[in-house]
């Protein structure tokens, strides 16, 4: 497909600068990864409102809480593994529980981190953050959406977790679109089955749907950027319309998108579903696209997984 690719991290950095110009009370924090997360772009523009605390993720989250309690809107960034894993208790006790105005924007979510390997490939963050009361969780699907989401969380009071990926992503939405918090979006209609995906897996799911079309299946593809609160209606409607749902995520199939969708289905409209993604194992080193192929999470892999699932369901 003729997609334009753009770095979501750069979109984040650019949006921070815009916000910094509009509002005096926005401060940005990082823990020695600012050249990677792109918060350095804000730091260059607004050195007095940028706190790069060094290799101290836990300290960063605590300081962010103190800044927020004193009236600042705080964006705190690191890699997903360190922002949510290393600093989990600080996020829980000092940000989520007091419901403070801290936006945790983490880059390098998922196995598509690539060569750095399992230690850096965060596949549990959506679960960790969704499990926290008061925390709202968003994983934008492209760089245009990153811009909208960053603007949205800046103006909404209270804590958010925003998960970005390392690699460039194809822009599937236009710059003009509105961000609808808590709403999924049908990216491609279909009646035989539904794929619900998030982040980098949305584009691969669209490509998989093209492969499946050649196999005679008409697949609906839904983008679920907001995983908490999740869009119940769009899931139930897909269940009723298509009778089979598969989730695809660059995350463990436990506690992420798949689990959230399963909860909605079981409570509202139980049908067969299948969870695809990292199947409860740590990743490994490799180029990000090679890894997606390795774990069956590229277009071909997703199509194959869906065919296997459909064979079972439509028996």
């Amino acid at each position: 497909m003729n997609w334009e690719y753009e770095s979501p991290r750069k979109a984040y950095g650019e949006t921070l600068i815009e916000l910094g110009k509009e509002r005096e009370d926005i401060v940005v924090m990082d823990a020695d990864l600012s050249t990677s997360t792109k918060t350095a772009m804000f730091g260059k523009e607004f050195p007095d409102r940028f706190f790069n605390v060094g290799l101290q993720e836990q300290n960063m989250m605590g300081i962010a809480a103190g800044l927020a309690r004193s009236g600042k809107i705080v964006f705190a960034s690191s890699f997903a593994v360190f922002a949510t894993g290393r600093a989990y208790d600080q996020v829980r006790q000092s940000i989520a529980y007091p419901k403070l105005n801290v936006k945790i924007v983490a880059t390098h979510g998922g196995v598509t981190v690539g060569e750095d390997g399992a230690s850096h490939q965060m596949i549990e963050d959506l679960g960790l953050m969704s499990g926290l009361p008061n925390m709202r969780v968003i994983a934008p699907l492209d760089s245009n959406e990153v811009r909208r989401v960053i603007r949205f969380v800046a103006k909404e009071d209270g804590p958010f977790y925003v998960r970005l990926t390392r690699t460039a992503l194809p822009n599937l939405t236009s710059g003009e679109d509105e961000f609808e918090f808590g709403k999924g979006r049908v990216m491609r209609d279909g009646s035989d089955a539904t794929i619900i995906a998030l982040g980098i897996e949305v584009s691969y799911s669209l490509l998989a749907a093209e492969i499946l079309k050649k196999e005679g299946y008409d697949i609906r593809v839904i983008n679920m950027s907001t995983i908490k609160p999740i869009d119940k209606d769009i899931i139930v409607k897909a269940a009723k319309d298509t009778g089979a749902i598969m989730t695809v995520e660059d995350h463990n199939i436990y506690n992420g998108l798949g689990s959230r969708v399963a909860e909605v289905l079981v409570e509202n409209y139980p049908i067969r579903m299948h969870r695809h993604g990292m199947k409860d194992r740590f990743g490994r080193s490799g180029k990000w696209n090679v890894l997606l192929e390795h774990y069956g999470m590229d277009d071909k892999g997703i199509a194959k997984e869906m065919l296997g699932f459909l064979k079972e369901v439509k028996k």
């Binding site: 060569e115 390997g117 399992a118 230690s119 850096h120 490994r284 080193s285 490799g286």
Partner: peptide, 13 residues
Amino acid sequence: FRDVNSYLQGHPS
């Protein structure tokens, strides 16, 4: 080093 089929992971393992 760092290849998908290698045991030489990006970070010590």
